[in-house]
C-alpha cells in the first residue's frame, strides 16, 4: 500500500487516479499510523515551501516522514514535495526543510520567464533502477524555485533552464521529482510506475 500524504497542499486527484489506473493500492492520508504502516510514501505539493513545512508540522507528520524515510521506507517527493526533502529554502523568507538530502532551494535568477512552466527535456545523468527500460523524453515542469543539491551524485536526472536544474534526485530509498510525473505523458507515468514497483518490491522484502 502506497500512502499519498494529504496535508492540504496539492492536487492529489490526478496522482491518485494515475496510480489507480496502473493498478496500485493507495491511501490518501495524513494519519501518522497509516503512514507508518504504508510500504511507501508519496509527498506531493504545490504552493510555498514555508507553508508546506508548517502544514506538515501542525499535523505532526514531518517527523513521521523523516523517521520512516531514514528507516529505509521508499519516499517520493513531487514538485514542491521534492524541494521539501532538502535542507532549506529561500521562498518567502528562510525555511528549513525535512533535511533528508543536503542542499538549498533558491529562486531562478537571470533573464528567464518564471515560473519555469511547460515541457522540458529530461536528461538521465546516472544509470538507476528507476530508468530501467526507459528513454529520455520531455516532462512537464512548473516551478519558480529549484534545488541546489550539495551532493551532485544525488541528482540522477536534470533539465536545462538557464542552468542545469535537478529534475530527479535519488539517494537510497529517498526520491524526488521536480516535474509532475502524473502530468508528463508516457514517460511521467512510467517513472511513477517504476517508483511504485520499487516500493512493492521493498515492501515484500521487508515483510
Amino acid at each position: 500500500m502506497l500512502a499519498i500524504i494529504d496535508y492540504g497542499m496539492g492536487n492529489l486527484h490526478s496522482l491518485s487516479k494515475a496510480l489507480e489506473r496502473m493498478g496500485y493500492d493507495y491511501v490518501i492520508t495524513s494519519d501518522p499510523d497509516v503512514l507508518r504502516k504504508a510500504n511507501g510514501l508519496i509527498l506531493p505539493g504545490v504552493g510555498a515551501f514555508g507553508d508546506a513545512m508548517y502544514e506538515l508540522a501542525i499535523r505532526g507528520i514531518d517527523t513521521v516522514i523523516k523517521a520512516e524515510a531514514l528507516e529505509g521506507k521508499p519516499l517520493l517527493g513531487i514538485c514542491l514535495g521534492m524541494q521539501l526533502l532538502f535542507s532549506s529554502s529561500d521562498e518567502n523568507g528562510y525555511y528549513e526543510g525535512l533535511n533528508l538530502l543536503p542542499g538549498h532551494v533558491a529562486r531562478f535568477r537571470g533573464e528567464l520567464r518564471i515560473p519555469h512552466m511547460g515541457w522540458n527535456w529530461l536528461f538521465f545523468k546516472h544509470p538507476h533502477p528507476l530508468f530501467r527500460d526507459l528513454s529520455e523524453d520531455y516532462v512537464y515542469f512548473v516551478h519558480s524555485y529549484y534545488v541546489q543539491a550539495a551532493n551532485s551524485e544525488d541528482v540522477i536526472a536534470t533539465t536545462n533552464y538557464g542552468t542545469s536544474v535537478p529534475a530527479i534526485v535519488a539517494r537510497n530509498q529517498i526520491y524526488g521529482m521536480q516535474f509532475h510525473p502524473e502530468k508528463s505523458g508516457k514517460l511521467g507515468l512510467k517513472l511513477l510506475n517504476q517508483f511504485a514497483r520499487l516500493v512493492e518490491k521493498v515492501g515484500v522484502d521487508v515483510s
Binding site: N11, S14, E20, E182, K183, K186
Partner: peptide
C-alpha cells in the same frame, strides 16, 4: 483529471477563493 496525462486549466465563472479551491481540488 482522472484520465489526462497532461496538465489542464479551467476558466469561466471563477469569482472567489472557494471557486478556485473547488476546481483545484
Amino acid at each position: 483529471a482522472g484520465q489526462l496525462s497532461i496538465p489542464f486549466t479551467v476558466g469561466g465563472g471563477i469569482a472567489s477563493v472557494e471557486d478556485i479551491f473547488r476546481m483545484l481540488r
